[in-house]
Simulated scan of single mutants.
Amino acid sequence: MTNDTHAVSPAIQAVKDITFGSIAGMTSKVFEHPFDLTKVRLQSQVLDATARFNGPIDCLVRTFHNEGVRGLYRGLPAPIAGAMVENASLFVSYSQLQHVIRWITGDLSSQELTLPQLAMAGAGAGAVTSFVLTPVELVKCKMQVQMLAVDVPGTSMHSPSAAALGPTLTSIKPQSLPGPIAVLTSVIRNGGLRGLWLGQTGTLIRETGGGAAWFACKEFVAAKLVQQRAARTGARLARKDIIPWESAVAGACAGAVFNFSLFPADTIKSAMQTEEELRPRGKGVSPPTFLGTARAMWRAQGIRGFYAGCGITVARSIPSSAMIFLIYDGLSKRFP
């Protein structure tokens, strides 16, 4: 994200941020979805008596073997729509908050904000986006564990023996499972509109801190790369002169930092959002809370439980985030 957008009218810049962010987000989401599905399934088993999967590779292989390519992309429509909203919201909020910071500091002519100011804008953008993102992730997570929640005749899927079966239930036809609209309406029917924001605390923590880390890291690495190129060539280069590989490297670093920094909050959120499918409490019982779920996970597996699926998440975030900024910066440069 460039910091010299003050020369463009706020309305036009907002349209560009929404458009470019949506394109970048959708493209990266198609690439990363199988890995995100793996992460959610690993996170959802932390509180189970018996783990369904031995790790990310086991989860990927068994999901592909039992559910095929379609299984790897289970729940994709929700995150595709969410990626449009998420990245559009992130980039437009980030851009507009930079204008707000310039207005507050009284330095409307400045093209460059300091790194702490960029981090502040990133944190604000993440906080705003979290309220849009939680319902999308709720539907996505519920769909991603559907094949793990189906009952086998004569066996409770919530018993250790059934849990061990996990995705070996090949008799279940994926097309018979509810789609995103059905899942969405079920959530509203059972918990009202408020139920759509189950796990909001985790999303807010992850997106606020992660947004600050994501944008600040990207801007920092990008600035250093441009400065090094300027020193080598002797040319006078500004932030807007970033080239594709520099955008990709800076984005890759930002993705790793974002996902690792507040991963436990994401794990708690995923466990909360999949509890109804995998560990139902019964009617009349209050939904899980953030702190209550965190305590249960700590008792079950300690610190290790909070980082279930972290490795594959960080690994997939590197190319995914690189792709987002490569596309976003490329479009911003192509259509200034």
Rank of each mutant, 00 (worst) to 15 (best):
P287W: 13
S286Y: 02
S186D: 11
S247T: 13
A121S: 10
S159A: 13
P280T: 03
A119H: 04
G195C: 05
M143D: 02
S247E: 13
G126N: 01
I104P: 02
I327A: 07
I12Q: 10
F215Y: 05
G106E: 00
I181T: 13
I324W: 04
H6S: 13
V69H: 08
L47W: 03
Y73H: 10
C59G: 12
R62H: 13
T105D: 12
T5Q: 11
Q144D: 10
V145Y: 05
A182K: 14
A250L: 12
R236Q: 11
T201E: 07
L72S: 11
S130I: 00
P280R: 14
Q117D: 00
Y94C: 07
N66M: 05
M1Q: 12
Q200V: 07
A119M: 14
Q43H: 10
N3V: 07
T38D: 01
A49W: 01
L237C: 08
T203G: 00
S320A: 13
G75T: 05
A163F: 01
Q273F: 04
V221D: 03
R206N: 08
L113C: 00
L108M: 06
S332E: 13
I324Y: 11
F258C: 09
I242V: 15
E207R: 05
L37T: 11
T201L: 13
V61G: 06
G166L: 03
T5K: 09
D107C: 01
A238D: 15
F258S: 01
R239M: 15
T105C: 00
V314I: 15
A121L: 08
F91E: 08
L115K: 04
C217G: 09
W197V: 09
V46W: 02
I188T: 07
K333G: 01
P178H: 10
S186G: 14
L113T: 02
R206H: 09
L225K: 07
F53N: 11
T289M: 09
G55D: 11
G179T: 06
I205P: 00
I324S: 01
V249A: 15
K269Y: 01
N259C: 11
A24L: 11
